[in-house]
């Protein structure tokens, strides 16, 4: 498996998600954590970009960070996978390596 990219910055404030996607090869995974989870919801101005990225990447989002921010898993974009901390650990072992974008 290629690389897992983690993104922890809000897509409305930083370009971290764009940068990560630009440097992710086809088949690479993207995990949204902390303020990065704000990219995961339908009805926002970044939703289309995330949907488009699903063509080349599996995209995961960390559930505890969604709950902390009062966001709803029901509004997560179709095709994204919500994971818990255990799932986070599984992903880290599944993918060959991890690139943590800060």
């Amino acid at each position: 498996m290629p690389m897992l990219h983690t993104v922890n910055k809000s897509p409305f404030e930083r370009r971290t998600l764009d940068t990560a996607l630009r440097h992710a090869v086809k088949g690479a995974g993207v995990l949204l954590i902390e303020d990065g989870v704000y990219a995961a919801f339908d009805g926002t101005v970044v939703a289309e970009k995330v949907k488009a990225a699903l063509a080349d990447h599996k995209i995961y989002v960390l559930g505890p960070d969604i709950a902390a921010r009062g966001m709803s898993e029901h509004h997560v974009i179709d095709g994204l996978e919500v994971v818990d901390y255990g799932g986070f650990v599984d992903l880290v072992t599944e993918y060959d390596k991890v690139q943590s974008w800060l």
Partner: peptide
């Protein structure tokens, strides 16, 4: 404004991330 609107989002529950929910 900007991401500041998220400060007053309803239903915040920080139990799992171990920080205080100040909303």
């Amino acid at each position: 404004m900007d991401d500041g609107v998220y400060q007053i989002k309803k239903d915040q529950n920080t139990d799992a991330i171990g920080v205080k929910n100040f909303s």
